[in-house]
Design a binder for these strands. Structure first.
Lengths: 114, 114
DNA sequence: CCTCAGGTACGATTCAAGTCATACCTGAAG
DNA sequence: CTTCAGGTATGACTTGAATCGTACCTGAGG
């Protein structure tokens, strides 16, 4: 199974309000900052973001990001892939990803750890 | 009296999180959309935005926008002026105002009234 | 079958934010 | 002085969001 994409809902009806609401949260912004900084746009696992919150809350945050149209979630059953919708975002909101990219990766959550 | 500027607090410490939180609210985003669309950047009165909320709540919203570093508030005692901090915003967050400007002025609050 | 790790669903809690009512301040105009 | 409009301060209410606990589902590997 290649995994089914769960992002269908809001493709071209991206709402700026929903996007700002999504990016208003520190943890979600951390995810988006990391995604924006990685121009390979490879599919990533949910655990690759080192979020200091429970897995239930992570599920919630990824759902918000998906419903805002910022990411795709690929369901593999017992695993999940995350992919930035870079092209769509750039088309509707040009410059938005650049703003996130200009932020220190991970923001105040990661500080310096290496 | 020329009026004293109340915006001093956060000039160069503009926080992207605070900005996104400020723009997450529909009414505040409406204000910013209108300000971004008017390139004359003239000082405007608080009542020029037609917000469908009480004046106490308007005070609250303008305070949030000011504390996020997005506007200046000029206090005339019994009157108040609002001015977009276009140059500062463009410097820290280039492209942000363009995103707002691309939105329909007033957004879903005004609908069409002309 | 069982076990295990990753993820979700539901409910409950906690907290921040938007909103307004009441009361008060400020300056301009009578 | 009084009146009035614009704005603020404080408190209270209400809604929404973030968080987690418990329970359950999913697929891989024994």
């Amino acid at each position: 199974m290649t995994g089914k994409n769960l992002a269908g809902p809001k493709t071209d009806v991206l709402d700026l309000g929903a996007v700002f609401r999504a990016l208003a949260d520190e943890h979600r912004r951390s995810v988006m900052t990391q995604l924006a900084a990685d121009h390979s746009d490879n599919e990533r696992g949910c655990n690759s973001f080192d979020l200091p919150i429970s897995k239930q809350t992570q599920t919630h945050h990824f759902r918000v990001l998906r419903e805002a149209g910022l990411i795709d979630e690929i369901d593999y059953g017992n695993r999940k892939g995350i992919r930035l919708r870079r092209a769509d975002i750039e088309k509707r909101f040009p410059g938005l990803l650049a703003l996130l990219e200009a932020e220190p990766s991970g923001g105040p959550l990661v500080a310096e750890r290496g």
